[in-house]
């Protein structure tokens, strides 16, 4: 299974330096948490890895190649981004059927992932009627559609109810156990200690820590104090 490698990544938007010479590896078989305060460059990093944003310098590779060079990208990489859009008038199931057609995925997989995400009953409702949590579940179902070896999720727990969060945690653990590579960006530490094995902490676009969670401490309190120390503004 492919690792994700980020090498010397830099991205500027006008005068804002969103990501600054960032390097880390997210190893296969592990859930890697990309942690950092709001605006620390997590989303930008993930969007670069997915070929949506062009880096100013450096690169992000998936199994050694850029996303844009993958022949069947969605069979390799599943992604859910913060602002993944849905056409409000399209039914949830149709949203996935559109995707399945684009990615050459058999139609029965659509109902399978709807079931996995707990959306079986809502499958034929237009997304307009969905709550934030339901949209999030649909986004996760879409990310898993291609049965990918790599999952890239941006703030996946946003809006999920406790059952949804427990399901997400279990699913990510299971997928990692199968050897897949999972990266989860989050600014919420609550869930992290129970889900991730590996952490990458960024602040103001710069790397502050990368390594196994156990190097920081397994408890929420230990992670929180480490996080606050590592991401505090210098001086």
């Amino acid at each position: 299974m492919p690792d994700i490698e980020v090498h010397g990544l830099t991205k500027t938007f006008g005068r804002v330096m969103a990501v600054r010479d960032l390097s880390f590896t997210a190893p296969a078989g592990k859930v890697t948490g990309l942690l950092g305060p709001n605006g620390s460059g997590k989303t930008t990093t993930l969007r670069i890895a997915l070929g949506l944003v062009r880096p100013t310098a450096g690169e992000a590779l998936i199994g050694g190649v850029r996303y844009g060079r993958l022949t069947r990208p969605r069979r390799v990489v599943g992604a859910m981004l913060e602002s993944t859009g849905f056409h409000p008038g399209r039914r949830a199931r149709d949203h996935l059927r559109v995707r399945a057609a684009a990615d050459g995925i058999p139609p029965r997989r659509v109902d399978e992932v709807l079931g996995l995400a707990g959306l079986g009953a809502a499958a034929r409702r237009p997304v307009r009627q969905f709550s934030l949590g339901m949209r999030q579940r649909l986004g996760l179902a879409a990310a898993m559609l291609g049965d990918p070896q790599v999952l890239i999720l941006d703030e996946p727990a946003n809006g999920l109810d406790p059952a949804g969060i427990a399901w997400l945690r279990g699913t990510l653990r299971d997928l990692a156990r199968e050897g897949r590579t999972i990266v989860v960006a989050s600014h919420v530490l609550g869930e992290v200690t129970r889900t991730v094995d590996h952490v990458v902490i960024v602040s103001a676009g710069e790397l502050r820590f990368a390594g196994p969670l156990s190097d920081i401490g397994e408890t929420h309190a230990a992670l929180e104090s480490a996080f606050l120390n590592l991401t505090a503004a210098p001086n």
Partner: peptide
């Protein structure tokens, strides 16, 4: 319309070209 609904992200992920 795809830019308006941000579905363009999904479209480009399926077809980076």
């Amino acid at each position: 319309g795809e830019y308006r609904h941000s579905t363009i992200t999904d479209t480009y992920l399926s077809s980076p070209r």
